[in-house]
């Protein structure tokens, strides 16, 4: 029996029942830009970076089930431009001051910006006022950098079996919350060894220890773009400087 395939532009992508476009494409060794997708977690579909075109409609590859012979358009000028604009929206929406951020060079948002050819955000920054939370002994929270991907929320629930993070507010007032009566991360059950403490793709959930051991310029995405490196963190066990 031949495995079923679908088409990513002109590439045949084999897939198994239950796979999404994203998981099948990744398994076939190709890269679709993404921030909120993680292979160990339930698909989410919020960052919208993995947009592809199917039957004339734009869909998120991470939440779209693979189907036999489906034609998935991926690499077009317009889609690449829209992916870049979505990254630019994220930059404009938060306070992303790369020069003063510890994860610069390891940041997946920044890496996608580099890879998608962003030199600046065409959208003027919104400069929101967001909270920081220094109550936890191991993890510092700087919401200026939050992109609401909910990797922390989902990994705490699904991998650590804990209810630590959530999203609250709405629209322009969306924010990351810590599940405790005080609302402080220090009053939750989060520990340094939890997966959720080491999954943030940006610098919002920042480990307090071990920073600046690798100098700027020698970090994860300084030499190689994210479409080659993949979405990683230096502390996820897959990085050797």
């Amino acid at each position: 029996m031949n495995e079923p395939v679908f088409w990513l532009d002109d590439k045949a992508i084999p897939f198994r029942d239950g796979q999404t476009v994203m998981t099948a494409v990744t398994a076939a060794g190709h890269y679709i830009p993404h921030l909120c997708h993680h292979p160990d977690l339930t698909p989410h579909g919020s960052c919208r970076l993995c947009i592809v075109q199917i039957d004339g409609r734009i869909r998120a590859a991470c939440t779209t089930p693979a189907q036999a012979n489906m034609k998935v358009t991926f690499d077009t000028t317009l889609l690449n431009q829209q992916r870049r604009q979505i990254v630019e929206l994220l930059f404009a929406e938060g306070n992303h001051l790369c020069p003063s951020c510890e994860v610069s060079g390891n940041c997946q948002l920044q890496a996608l910006a580099y890879d998608l050819g962003m030199t600046h955000s065409e959208f003027a920054p919104l400069y929101p006022q967001r909270e920081t939370d220094g109550s936890h002994p191991d993890i510092f929270v700087d919401q200026d950098r939050c992109i609401f991907c909910e990797l922390c929320t989902r990994s705490a629930r699904e991998l650590d079996q804990k209810n630590i993070f959530g999203i609250s507010g709405r629209g322009s007032h969306t924010y990351l919350l810590a599940h405790s009566d005080s609302g402080k991360l220090g009053d939750t059950a989060l520990t340094e060894t939890d997966r959720a403490a080491h999954i943030c793709p940006v610098g919002c959930l920042l480990p307090r220890n071990g920073n600046y051991q690798i100098p700027i310029g020698e970090r994860l995405y300084d030499a190689q773009p994210i479409h080659i490196r993949g979405n990683h963190r230096p502390d996820d066990g897959e990085f050797t400087p």
């Binding site: 001051l97 020069p99 600046h120 955000s121 920054p125 400069y127």
Partner: peptide, 18 residues
């Protein structure tokens, strides 16, 4: 030409915007 982070998005001086 906008040169550098500050010209492009305000940079570190923009920390005062809050």
């Amino acid at each position: 030409v906008a040169v550098g982070a500050c010209a492009i998005n305000g940079g570190v001086p923009a920390l005062r915007n809050r």
